[in-house]
Amino acid sequence: MIDVKTVTKRYNGTVVVDGVSLSLPAGGVISLIGANGAGKSTLLSIISRLLPMSSGTVEIDGLDVTTTPGEVLARRLSILRQDNQIMSRLTVEDLVAFGRYPHSKGRLTDEDRGHIRNALRYLDLEPLAGRFLDELSGGQRQRAFIAMVLCQDTEYILLDEPLNNLDVKHAVAMMKLFRRTADEFGKTIVLVLHDINFASCYSDRIVAMRDGRVVHQGPPEVIITPEVIHDVYGVEAQVMENAGQRIALYYQ
């Protein structure tokens, strides 16, 4: 369980995350939505100990993220931020293999190799395994990073806008993969998503933020309504139901 208690983050007096308390049970796909600047990415970075918080606590299965050794957390929680600028010339396979570092410390076992092979296969990266990252397109590189994080095989997987740079085909495949990872392996996947319809179709739970606070949370049928969408984004939307899934139309 991820337990966030009254977390606040200030930058030079500007409050970006404002006293957020949130408790996310283990298992399933959870989407964080909200307008630009609502504090989603900041909250995700705080939960994953990449950013220090100004006040409050975050616990992962009872482990305080600010005091638990980094290598212990790295076997329990993984995080991928957006915009991963890497100057290193690593091959896709090297990068994915580094996902096993928290477990193997660089000495790959057969089990590690199995994880690497699976991650490459799930993300359709086998033909690119030997290519250098700087020779790939943005979408291919994004898939390689996600493969690294999945290869880390942690209980909790946090991803900031994982669909960035992905075309429709790969975005759908990615969301299906997250769904499957949660259902078959019992993982907890927390995503920051911009596309509320992907959030609607694939999440067990949606958390909506505005101005640094959590304003709504619940299953898609509670969140994907014209009222909530208006409250969160300030736009008029129609919501259609199609084959049991709720789709918001907000294009006009």
């Binding site: 994953s48 990449l50 980094g70 991963n84 890497i86 996902g99 928290p102």
Partner: peptide, 10 residues
């Protein structure tokens, strides 16, 4: 690979 990736990997 940068501070964030390094931290993620413990």
């Amino acid at each position: 690979m940068g501070r964030d990736v390094a931290t993620n990997l413990g």
